[in-house]
Computed example of a mutant assay.
Amino acid sequence: MILVFGQSGQVATELQRLQPDALFLGRAQADLSDPDACAAAIRAHAPRVVINAAAYTAVDRAEEEDALATTINGDAPAAMARACAALGIPLVHISTDYVFDGSGEVPFAPDHPTEPLGAYGRSKLKGEQGVRAAGGTYAILRTSWVFSAHGNNFVKTMLRLGAERDSLTVVADQIGGPTPARAIGQACLTIAQHLQTAPEASGTYHLSGAPDTSWAGFARAIMAEAGLHCEIADIPTLAYPTPARRPLNSRMDCSSLSVFGLDRPSWREGLEDVLRDLKGNS
């Protein structure tokens, strides 16, 4: 049995579609603000593998809720990892490009020094450190710019605004890889299966959609694919201030995913899938 922390988030929702017989624990069953409860859930269910698809993801609010973000993103994954290590089962934990400072233009390798810009990135980095320190079998999967037909994300925001307005201004100097939540879910399942027979593959990996683009470039693709006549004007990050600093460079080197037979997913294909899902839901 696969145990998944998360139930309503983007990746957890896709995992339910991909692996409906897995056990999904939402906040009512395992609240990540109580790390001991998360560890107890693992011991109680004794699964063959654990996937942590739950997190505190409110990047700006984390600046004011640093302690809560750190508990959910830092302490809870560490507690999960220790419980998994004690039972000898693998843990797949999802992390983020926000552990880096976003400098330069070269894609970040998994072993590149980390230097988060804000509270959210610091909390996710603490989680990574806790997972590694537990000494068990694990994979940390860093990803970026997640989108799907579920929850709140950039694609759904652009579709809503694009239907309401003739033009929008969108940041053009942040560069990264939009990543379909479905591709992340599939990668988690593939990695989890691999780790059960090859624990030596434990480590940190990157998964982001290809090709790299800007938020403005992504927005134009969304409008074109959806048939919306909304013009996108480029602006710099400085023209759109937010409580938390965003990394300008979110490019990630995903080449080590070849260990699992995985490659970067096409975000354009993922976007087509999401638009089909949204059309079907409506």
Rank of each mutant, 00 (worst) to 15 (best):
M1N: 13
F5P: 11
G6L: 00
S8E: 10
A12E: 05
E14V: 03
R17E: 12
R17D: 07
D21I: 02
D36V: 14
D36F: 10
D36H: 14
A40Q: 13
P47E: 09
V49N: 04
V50C: 14
I51L: 15
A53Y: 12
A58H: 11
V59Y: 07
D66V: 04
N73H: 07
A76W: 15
A76I: 15
A79Y: 04
M80V: 03
R82Y: 01
A83T: 06
A85F: 02
A85Q: 00
L87F: 08
L87D: 11
L87G: 11
G88P: 06
I89D: 10
I89E: 11
P90W: 11
V92L: 08
I94N: 08
S95L: 15
V99C: 08
G104A: 02
V106S: 11
A109T: 13
T114I: 02
E115H: 13
G118H: 13
G127D: 02
R132Q: 12
R132Y: 06
A133S: 06
Y138E: 11
A139Y: 00
I140P: 11
I140K: 14
I140E: 04
L141G: 12
T143F: 03
S148T: 11
A149Y: 08
A149K: 07
V155L: 13
T157H: 05
L161Y: 12
L161R: 15
G162S: 07
E164W: 01
V171Y: 12
D173P: 06
I175K: 14
A181N: 14
A183G: 01
G185Y: 00
L189A: 13
T197F: 06
P199T: 04
T204P: 06
G209C: 03
G209E: 02
P211Y: 00
A216I: 10
A216R: 09
G217E: 12
M223G: 01
E225G: 03
E231M: 10
I232H: 07
D234S: 02
P236W: 06
P236H: 09
A239H: 09
A239I: 03
T242I: 07
R245F: 10
N249Y: 03
S250Y: 01
V259P: 05
L262P: 14
P265V: 03
D273W: 05
V274Q: 00
L275R: 02
